[in-house]
Design a protein around this nucleic acid. Structure first.
Length: 805
RNA sequence: GCCCAGGUGGUGGAAUGGUAUACACGCAGGACUUAAAAUCCUGUGACCGCAAGGUCUUGAGGGUUCGAGUCCCUCCCUGGGCACCA
């Protein structure tokens, strides 16, 4: 009997569909379990093996939860709206809408083939007006709550994609999609005030069960730092008789107020408004103006290369701590968007200031002395903790304590800053949800009323970006011209569309409610199914998607629309699949197309092989030669099942081994360590295979149930062959008995001085005295201990005995 | 530079502080076959040895421990993230 995977896989996929095995009753489910995988953005090239790896990893967990008796909801959809899909369409000279249709068919077809337990009655696509209507609705909720605002700002502009990008979409100065160098551009854009939620986003991290790595990445991105704002007075006149009226304050933010006595100059960012406001006082204005102009043209990358700056001649600031007059510089190593855009420079204890001071030969005053002698590398300065010196009455104080004391001494204000900045959601592109705003000459900015949603994306062939800072929609008069929802007069529509990350920021809320037409999500259904029980996805979304979903959920919570603040109870990041030790790429020609392997080996073999490569969280190296290992394993198992059906006699039970297997598999599947489950199943099969008597049905069934989440079609078939009428996914995951996981007889390890010298077959519960007595009579051991004094004996019950001489 | 995750046979990878190298691939030898493929059996970390057996081995070096791949310290390398955030 041969294992005909093609026939078997088609048969069970059809059966599952007919029986609606994976469809949940969203309203009446008794034990809801929401098992979610990050939905893919589809390309017409189809499902990548990396997608399949992640989806299968998630599906196995879902199928396991189903076997544990839960009503598992495992939906799938497509994140096909947005710049990635649009760029792909443009590259292939196909209209994005047409491309979406094509890729949808292709993707869904492929997704059927891999045998996941998706509820196909609840799919969603972000470009579907039924979906993006509610994305626009979400924008309106933000707007109503004062969390959406339009502002002119220096934003990230990708000259190649011809759109702005959020800070999160810029990687090391490059566009995350096309790797073009991003430039700064002053533009009027829509933002979401995610910064209002900085503290909550940070605090809640400790409460959620997420991959540690992801949590750390979010914490760093939010970047909380505690410090103080300190004022420096800048006298603007030499007229000593009336100095007060001419004093301006410059405020700096610092996390090291303890080093204030070591501050020898101030630095302003080129964008700081103080400079422009006081240009008459600056003696070298031409030089300064020139410097600022140049700095603004630089990319972020160029700014970091070398520190440059110019002194504002003719004005000085006063360090309140020691009343010293210090120079003021403008330098582009100070960022305008963080803190106050101005810093106090302490070259003795800050590496950047040190570098700058060395270059421009500025005064360096040490104020913190390390308590223990530490080596400081040449061309470096001491940034650690210590004892204050050269700090007036604070000398001798620990710097950590001085932070508060000195801040209070100079009347500074304690302040917390975050690196997180507001989320820029405007995109000057076509393929996205139009931002639902109208501009009326009389009424100003007017949101489109909810009843008028969706603001449909026009059907037009004029969708190419033109390199201006306006969306292609701005060229579409029919779209632009509208009536003011407030006064009925002439108005113009907002022509930008929203960021694709807004589409994906709430999709998990929509899935259970896709059938609801008059609301984005039904309150009761949402209460039943959310938050998501298990979310699996790529770590690359640690600070983009995952931060936005948390923010959106918090806002909806504050609006009273959901009763939870965190969208995902549990999140696990999967690793990446590489090929023969190298990253897969089209140029290398080492891209794996799952279809080829499904054709050759079947979906189950591919699924199981992918999981066998390594732990899901780690990813692994795909090697063609490796696949046959799984193929052989399946072949042997299938043969054994066939053989068992025809054999006679008493059944041989491997009770201990079976219980051990269940214990290991249960533990590993919870941790997504599927590779070791497969290894254990192979070991168990090797055991069954070797023995001559009739295999017990129980042992075989246990093996099949444990394998079923990995190889669902194959296991259904074998399950049926064993005479079972119902799906294997309707049975219960096997339980183990702890007492039956231990053998009665064990091979006790005998060590001398920690080195293994011998073994001894004994009862599991042998006492130390008895073991010690027996061991010392053994010939091999006597050889080692003869004539020596035994210092002590270490006995680990059921494991080993170690004689120390 | 900072923060994570790693570094184990020819390869992918296993190991609650307790037999390092499970499981699988590959390789070698054998069985079946006219032959090949498939399948099955045996072996497979290195070194010494005919063997029994012994010595060494988890990136490097120290330490803790009866015992360290696992814990601690110093360092090197690889992958990923952040990066002038004061």
């Amino acid at each position: 009997m041969k294992y005909d995977f093609k026939k078997i896989e088609a048969k069970w996929q059809k059966k599952w569909e007919e029986e609606k095995l994976y469809q949940v009753d969203v309203k009446n489910s008794a034990k809801p379990f929401y098992n979610l995988m990050m939905f893919p953005y589809p390309s017409a090239e189809g499902l990548h093996v990396g997608n399949m790896y992640a989806f299968t990893g998630s599906d196995i967990y879902g199928r396991y939860q189903r076997l544990k008796g839960n009503d598992v909801f495992e939906p799938i959809g497509l994140d096909g709206f947005g710049i990635h899909s649009e760029n792909f369409a443009i590259k292939n000279k196909i209209h994005p809408a047409e491309m979406a249709e094509k890729t949808q068919n292709n993707f869904y077809k492929q997704l059927h083939m891999i045998g996941n337990s998706y509820d196909w009655s609840k799919t969603l696509e972000t470009y579907d007006p039924d979906y993006y209507k509610w994305t626009q609705w979400l924008f309106l909720q933000m707007y109503k709550k004062g969390l959406a605002y339009k502002k002119k700002a220096a934003v990230n502009w990708c000259p190649s994609c011809m759109t702005v990008l959020s800070d999160e979409q810029v990687e090391a100065g490059l566009c995350e999609r096309c790797k073009t160098e991003v430039v700064k551009k002053d533009m009027s854009q829509w933002f979401f005030k995610i910064t209002d939620y900085a503290e909550k986003l940070l605090k809640n991290i400790d409460k959620i069960d997420w991959t540690e790595k992801t949590k750390v990445a979010q914490k760093n991105w939010i970047g909380k730092s505690e410090g103080a704002e300190i004022n420096f007075q800048v006298p603007m006149t030499n007229d000593q008789s009336n100095p007060k009226s001419q004093i301006t304050n410059l405020t700096v933010f610092t996390t090291r107020p303890d080093t204030l006595f070591g501050c020898t100059y101030l630095v302003l960012s080129p964008e700081h408004k103080f400079i422009e406001e006081n240009k008459e006082k600056i003696e070298n204005w031409n030089e300064v103006e020139e410097y600022i102009k140049k700095a603004k043209e630089k990319t972020d990358q160029e700014r970091t290369n070398e520190k440059t700056g110019v002194e504002l001649k003719g004005i000085k600031a006063v360090n309140r701590a020691n009343k010293k007059e210090i120079p003021i510089f403008v330098a582009d190593y100070v960022l305008s968007g963080y803190g106050t855009g101005a810093i106090m420079a302490v070259p003795a204890h800050d590496e950047r200031d040190f570098e700058f001071a060395q270059k421009y030969d500025l005064e360096i005053v040490e104020v913190v002395e390390p308590e223990k002698k530490v080596k400081i590398a040449e061309q470096k300065c001491y940034t650690g903790d210590g004892i204050l010196i050269n700090s007036g009455k604070f000398d001798g104080m620990k710097n950590v304590e001085a932070k508060k004391a000195i801040t209070e001494f100079v009347g500074g204000k304690f302040k917390i800053n975050y690196k997180l900045r507001d989320w820029c959601i405007s995109r000057q592109r076509f393929w996205g949800p139009p931002i639902p705003i109208a501009y009326c000459e009389k009424c100003g900015t007017v949101p489109v009323p909810e009843k008028d949603l969706p603001v449909l994306l026009p059907k037009t062939d004029d969708y190419m970006p033109d390199g201006t800072d306006r969306s292609p929609l701005a060229r579409n008069e029919k779209f632009v011209e509208t009536k003011c929802p407030k006064c009925g007069g002439d108005a113009k529509r907002e022509t930008d569309v929203s960021d694709t990350f807004l589409d994906s920021s709430w999709y998990f809320l929509r899935y259970p409610s896709v059938d609801i037409k008059d609301q984005p999500f039904d309150k009761e259904i949402t209460k039943k199914w959310l938050p998501v029980d298990m979310y699996i996805g790529g770590h690359e979304h640690a600070v983009l998607h995952l931060l936005y979903t948390r923010f959106v959920t918090m806002v909806l919570y504050d609006l009273g629309m959901v009763d939870f603040e965190e969208p995902f109870k549990k999140f696990r990041a999967h690793g990446l699949i590489i090929k023969d030790g190298a990253k897969m790429s089209k140029s290398k020609g080492n891209v794996i197309n799952p279809d080829d392997y499904i054709e050759k080996y079947g979906a189950d073999v591919l699924r199981t092989y992918l999981m066998f490569i390594g732990p899901l969280k780690q990813g692994g190296d795909f090697r063609d030669e490796g696949v046959v290992g799984i193929e052989r394993f399946f072949g042997r198992l299938f043969f054994l099942v066939s053989k068992t059906l025809n054999s006679l006699g008493n059944e041989k039970h491997f009770e201990i081994e079976r219980n051990k297997l269940i214990k290991k598999a249960t533990n590993d599947i919870e941790n997504l360590d599927y590779n070791t489950i497969i290894a254990s199943l192979m070991e168990f099969l090797n055991l069954l295979d070797k023995q001559k008597e009739k295999i017990s049905k129980k042992d075989l069934e246990t093996l099949i149930i444990i394998l079923s989440p990995l190889a669902p079609h194959f296991c259904e078939e074998m399950w049926e062959m064993l005479g079972n009428k119902e799906s294997v996914f309707k049975v219960t995951w096997p339980e183990f008995d702890e007492n039956k996981t231990k053998e009665a007889k064990i091979k006790l390890i005998i060590q001398v001085n920690g080195k293994v010298r011998d073994f001894m077959e004994v009862n599991n519960d042998i006492s130390e005295e008895k073991a010690s007595e027996l061991v010392q009579k053994r010939e091999k051991i006597m050889k080692f201990i003869a004539g020596k004094k035994i210092k002590k004996i270490i006995f680990v019950k059921g494991r080993l005995i170690n004689i120390v001489i």
